[in-house]
Simulated scan of single mutants.
Amino acid sequence: MPTLTPYTPAHFAALSALQLPAAQEQFTAYPADLIPETEADADSLGVTILADIGLDGEAPVGYFVLSAGAQRDKYLPEPDPAGVAIRALSIDERCQGRGIGTAAMEAVPELVRAHFPQAEYVFLVVNARNAHARRVYEKAGYAVWFGRDGGKAGPQWVMRRELAGASALE
């Protein structure tokens, strides 16, 4: 199953070659477009998804961003420092359908606890027309929290997963 690791420049070439199905392009962003702004934002962490896809060990096959601060709060009705947003999940189309996205989203809480110790929950926004992505997130333990009208591609669901045991780390 995949490994989640903070983005490093060594991942850039592989992530720049990541391909998305045309139907998904309206719902997410390519990593190469996100990496510069994420690296410049002290409240965000770029995350590379590594998986063993039959090459020489694990290779970058996906990317997403974890955000606190303004990038988190723009999706919420009011700012909430207890939350961390998952943004712009992208899995290379050649690796989709193998459970990599679901397993990566299942592993997010551990990574969030390590890098955002104040967090009590993680959340993400999924377009209401993107039924496939919603199923992936539901399989990984995320549940619809509320709906919102925002988004250039139409209505969205905000999905949330509690970080069980977050207070036990203190």
Rank of each mutant, 00 (worst) to 15 (best):
P21I: 07
A13Y: 12
I86S: 02
L76H: 15
V65L: 03
F146R: 11
D149T: 10
P60R: 08
C95T: 05
D56V: 04
G97R: 05
F146I: 09
A22C: 06
S16R: 06
A85R: 00
G57W: 06
F12W: 09
P77T: 08
P155M: 07
R113V: 12
V158F: 02
V158I: 11
E162I: 13
A103N: 05
P117K: 14
A70V: 14
E25Q: 14
H132N: 14
V112R: 00
V122Y: 03
V136M: 15
G62T: 00
P155F: 09
S67K: 05
V112Y: 02
A119S: 13
M105Q: 04
G69A: 11
D41S: 09
A164S: 15
A22I: 07
R87K: 15
V136D: 13
G97N: 03
L89D: 01
A114D: 07
R87A: 08
A140F: 12
A140D: 11
G62Q: 01
S167R: 15
D92G: 11
D80R: 11
S67T: 07
I35M: 13
V126Q: 04
T28K: 02
R72W: 05
D73V: 14
A59F: 09
Y142K: 04
E78R: 15
Q71W: 12
V125T: 12
G154E: 08
H11Q: 06
P6R: 05
T28G: 07
A114S: 13
R148H: 08
P31D: 10
A103C: 04
Y142G: 03
P81M: 14
R135I: 13
G154F: 10
Y121C: 06
L163D: 09
Q71T: 10
Q118K: 13
A59P: 03
D73T: 11
Y75W: 15
Q156K: 10
D43C: 08
W157E: 08
E25P: 00
V125A: 13
Q71L: 12
T5W: 02
T38G: 06
P155C: 06
E39N: 14
G141M: 04
G46I: 07
A166E: 09
I49N: 01
Q26K: 15
M1N: 06
A51N: 01
F123L: 13
K139T: 08
R135E: 13
Q26P: 01
L66C: 04
S16N: 08
L20K: 03
T3A: 02
L111F: 12
